[in-house]
């Protein structure tokens, strides 16, 4: 495999291979010396067209732990200021002779576009509303770590499914296992034509009932301005996961969030502090998972 563009292109076996490899890297990360010489002499570039701190930092750390030389290339773009085309940016970077390109871009399909035009290995760190595959892999890794399995689980994804690349990648990954997938949120945040294997819930408590895993999505604050929801307050009241809802959550369930969180919008502080929440564990697992992805590209 040359690139990781999306989960939808992966087989279950490929996903399992990544998760197994991530497990090995997690052990490395618990050692005193956390760096392995595996990819010494190779170069990775983090090409970010959207502001990101967490994902970029997580990739950077993963790359450094693998002994890659790392470049960061941030191109803040806006609709008003049109700079060089994506194609030209890519060709410039190719001229640096890099081995891995990690890309985040606001257009769906941008990672595929880059991969089609370069010899380097491309890893999608989020393209528009399409996919964020490493997030889904680290979520799966975290679920596996705690639950010991993915098959047979009921997973509720709560929030702005329509505009969420995290939701899409998670949906594709979970669809490759024997799972029950639920989309929970206000209708304006749900796809008008949901996939057949998804159960749709408009009421939070119905959606999280008996769920083994609850994934809360970040609500982009500008969605309120564009009219998808009347107010953040109302959203919190009906779809935010709050203290009162916790009694409806299974005792052995896990609560996840890709970060960064909006306390008082999609989650309350009590939920974040609940022992069932594994939000920081997800962050730690992100590094091992991303190491596994980089390590496996061009190998298998």
């Amino acid at each position: 495999m040359k690139d990781l563009i999306g989960i939808k292109e992966l087989s279950r076996a490929q996903i399992e291979e990544i998760l197994n490899t991530a497990k090995a890297f997690k052990e490395v990360l618990q050692r005193d010396i956390k760096k392995v010489p595996t990819l010494r002499g190779k170069t990775a570039i983090n090409l970010f067209f959207e502001p990101s701190t967490r994902t970029r930092t997580s990739f950077e750390l993963a790359e450094k732990r693998l002994s890659l030389d790392v470049l960061n290339f941030s191109v803040p773009t806006s609709a008003v200021v049109k700079g060089e085309t994506l194609y030209d940016t890519l060709k410039t970077i190719e001229a640096y002779n890099v081995d891995y390109i990690v890309i985040r871009h606001s257009s769906s399909g941008a990672a595929k576009f880059i991969a089609d035009h370069t010899e380097a290995s491309v890893i999608n760190a989020g393209d528009g509303i399409n996919e964020h595959p490493t997030q889904a892999l680290l979520d799966a890794f975290s679920i596996l770590e705690i639950k010991g399995r993915i098959d047979g689980l009921k997973i509720a994804i709560v929030g702005d499914i329509l505009h969420s690349r995290v939701a899409r990648s998670n949906y594709y990954l979970l669809s490759k296992f024997d799972t029950e997938i639920r989309f929970v949120g206000p209708p304006t945040f749900l796809p008008s034509h949901p996939p057949e294997n998804v159960k749709v819930y408009y009421r939070l408590r119905d959606g999280i009932k008996d769920a083994d895993v609850i994934i809360m999505l970040r609500i982009q604050l500008e969605r309120q301005k564009s009219g998808f929801i009347p107010s953040l307050k109302e959203y919190y009241h009906f779809w935010g996961l709050k203290k009162e809802d916790l009694s409806f959550v299974r005792d052995d369930a896990i609560l996840m969030h890709p970060g960064p969180m909006n306390r008082g919008v999609e989650v309350s502080t009590e939920v974040v502090n609940d022992p069932r929440a594994i939000i920081l564990k997800q962050v730690t697992n992100g590094i091992a998972t991303r190491m596994a992805v980089i390590y496996l590209l061009r190998r298998s």
């Binding site: 393209d127 528009g128 399409n130 899409r168 996939p195």
Partner: peptide, 9 residues
């Protein structure tokens, strides 16, 4: 439709 959801467009 289903395809737009699938492609993330």
């Amino acid at each position: 439709g289903k395809l737009s959801f699938y492609l993330g467009l």
